[in-house]
Write a protein that binds this DNA or RNA. Structure first.
Lengths: 191, 191
DNA sequence: GTCTATATACGGATAGAC
DNA sequence: GTCTATCCGTATATAGAC
């Protein structure tokens, strides 16, 4: 997980993995058929650990569902900051690096995105009353993911937190406006 | 440009380039010092051609500055659709693929993003009156880029246009809400 | 199940004739 | 400026002893 997140999939050699894990080639190939097998295992670990490794720590002590959105995004911000904007979302990096992913790889990438989106969608659904009636919470949850991934991409490229921060600020403003028009129904509804 | 867009940088071998260009190794290395030299030339070509190759075709026959936003995004949608969601934004792909870009590469990546953002920002500025007074148009323009890149990433991963389409729909809704509160100043301003 | 040694292929890059 | 031939490192993966 560490190597793929930091160096990417292609740039991580089997030799790198052996060295980091302090094992030898024979051991690795006893447990995994190919390098892609290692990738699949890593993606499964992310998928299975998303709640315990990512969501739970991010939401500890945060009860309001909408505040939980920002708490989760804050988590990514911290990772960016800690690494001087070198690493953001490991799943997103792999998703774009692997241009023609074999079906099992793609399935695991989407499974990761789906689970992430599930948690966000749940936040919206439990606060559905705060939003306009016709709000599509699935779409909105995916939009949070979109904003995070896009913001991470730009921040990694610029090596500055600005892009990520301003993306989150715009998203907050959007969510805030949605809540305002729900309280104060004025005219047009969501598309 | 074609190969890096389709296969990525690492996965494109010099041999691939030679075959596609129908030249031999000696010729290529007479004009470029290394493979990275080819990448730099490609990124320069994107940067220098952004107006003629991307913006001008997208905005042909579209006069309203805000409509131009959607026309540009539509351009990316077409590319996704044509390639069955395999290729989206070549700059974004390269930005995430190259984890530790050498300074010259990073400079050219950001130059590409900057120019893109410039065109969008200009759209907002010429319609400044439609938006709340304190709107940060640079931030908003970057947010359009963020949304596009994030949407492209998700659509490429899912191999479906849904993620891209819903991201654009949410963005449209946001821009629309901003214009509504500008016309109908109610309460809170932008952060 | 882990070790060492190695097969085999392909990568980027170079040499030197023309 | 382009050609052919090739160097040399490193990549993934395997073989077979222990």
């Amino acid at each position: 997980m560490k190597l793929f997140a930091e160096k990417g999939y292609d740039s991580t050699s089997i030799a790198d993995i052996l060295q980091a894990a302090k094992v030898n080639s024979g051991s690795l190939y006893h447990h995994f058929d190919t390098k892609q097998g290692v990738l699949l295992a890593v993606l499964e670990a992310y998928r299975d650990g998303i709640e315990s490794m990512l969501i739970a720590p991010a939401w500890k002590g945060v009860d309001d569902p909408i505040e939980r959105l920002w708490a989760l995004l804050e988590r990514y911000r911290q990772l960016l900051k800690m690494t001087e904007c070198a690493y953001g979302c490991p799943i997103g990096s792999l998703a774009l690096e692997i241009h023609e992913p074999d079906p099992p790889v793609r399935t695991l990438l989407t499974a990761n995105f789906d689970r992430w989106t599930d948690f966000i969608e749940e936040c919206f659904k439990t606060t559905a009353k705060r939003f306009p009636k016709k709000t599509d919470f699935r779409s909105l949850a995916r939009f949070v993911l979109t904003t995070m991934e896009g913001g991470v991409m730009l921040s990694r490229t610029y090596r500055t937190l600005d892009a990520f921060d301003s993306a989150v600020a715009e998203l907050k403003n959007y969510i805030s406006l949605l809540q305002q028009i729900a309280m104060n129904p004025k005219r047009k509804k969501r598309s």
